[in-house]
Design a protein around this nucleic acid. Structure first.
Lengths: 240, 240
DNA sequence: CGCGGAAAAATGTGATCACGTAGCACGGAA
DNA sequence: TTCCGTGCTACGTGATCACATTTTTCCGCG
């Protein structure tokens, strides 16, 4: 099960995240979460406690807690012998993730619609413009970060303390795999429905926003359906 | 383990969980999870790291990780100063929890139906008979344990790696509050739909099972709607 | 040249310690 | 009697250490 990826240098630009607020564990967890969501962690890749600690320049202790936290959200997998790795994807799990997203996220969007205002529509448009640029540029990492920002700008507005964490967990689960697929087929084939969503927000049309989000999920996940479950590409696509 | 277990046991209720397998952290987490699900932790009550460690006869270390894990599942709340407490319930959060349950659990039941066999129906009937007894006896803690066993016997059959953890998180969130309500209004007023569910399992009728679970959720949560958000009762159920 | 086993390195786990801080009670002053 | 400051206590956090176990390396034997 050893992957021949060269682990020459450890610095995956993890500590590049400038967020210096909060406790050390908080910073570590935020850093890991961000790395997961932008796909800097490859599924199947083992994650060692001391290695991460060294990368981040801290002791293994806060890393331990952060990993445990992420594992509880199913963003990481802790094998019975304690080794931590990014979960590998299976077609079944991906299908389940899509269905779970379709159950929760459109509902969240519907609730958010009532609280979103034209200012939010402008903010979303700004994000979406940047997304279009990143798609053209083929910058998968930036795209994923912005796409996440777009969706969660909507979801957060719902003010849901229950649904939002569930959806966050789902994103953490499919993001690493999504990144791999983007690395293979590129980001050009992406069809999102952000424009419809923005229009719905601007006009305050809840059901339209709900439907746009649902379509967006279907479009985004469709791309992932038949790609790359088997192994990690030995072409090291983790950095840059 | 070179730990001198010369400590006088402060509480029998926590380490009473017989599961002695696995690592210490695993046992601690299982113990806490069980305590949460059966309502032995009162919402709003502060949970201290060292206190719990002493109760369980271990060092604060595994407790720390277990708490962090539970907190990631929203079963515990870590305040900005680091203090841990069982989350308090609000009407809004309870309504969200019910709606989230209704989104996920009937779907899970529908998927489980295809894999449940008459043997499962018999097992469920056995659990349900015990539930009836515990309701008559007014034993809220036993009722909650069995009710959880009943539902998750069904849900687990679905074999879902994605939906099941989400539902587990939801249960951990409303269970402590549910326990308080039972302590106030008793368990006699409970109306469950387990009989319908068992019949549906026996006949392999998926939609019927789905509908029975949905009705069961509505019936169970309705009881909680207008009760006891304000303060925690002084009845200290864990120790002292 | 290939295989196997032993040595060595690395990993997770749990315990203990040091440190900064937040609560809290006690006591003195108004 | 009430209010406020000061000291004490307990807490969470992070680091370091010790240990058992697993993984990897590597050397010798077939």
């Amino acid at each position: 099960m050893n992957i021949p990826v060269a682990e020459a240098e450890r610095s995956d630009s993890l500590e590049a995240t400038p967020s210096g607020r909060g406790s050390t564990r908080e910073r570590v967890e935020r850093s890991l979460r961000h790395a997961l969501l932008t796909g800097r962690f490859v599924p199947g890749r083992p994650v060692t406690l001391r290695g991460l600690a060294q990368d981040l320049g801290v002791s293994p202790m806060p890393v331990r807690e952060a990993l445990r936290s992420l594992a509880a959200e199913k963003a990481l997998d802790i094998k019975p012998n304690g080794r931590v790795q990014v979960p590998t994807m299976t077609p079944e799990r991906l299908a389940e993730l899509q269905q779970a997203r379709l159950m929760l996220e459109p509902e969240l969007a519907l609730r958010a619609a009532a609280k979103l205002n034209p200012g939010d529509a402008r903010a979303l448009k700004e994000i979406d413009d940047a997304i279009d640029k990143s798609i053209d540029g083929g910058d998968a990492e930036t795209y994923m970060r912005l796409n996440h920002a777009f969706h969660f700008h909507v979801y957060r507005a719902a003010g849901s303390e229950v649904l939002l964490p569930l959806v966050e967990s789902l994103w953490l689960q499919f993001a690493p795999f999504m990144r791999i697929v983007y690395g293979r087929v590129g980001t050009a084939a992406l069809e999102d429905h952000h424009k419809e969503a923005i229009a719905a927000v601007a006009s305050g049309d809840g059901p339209a926003l709900q439907s746009a989000i649902a379509s967006d999920i279907r479009g985004g996940m469709k791309l992932l359906q038949g790609a790359g479950y088997e192994a990690v590409p030995d072409t090291n696509s983790t950095k840059d």
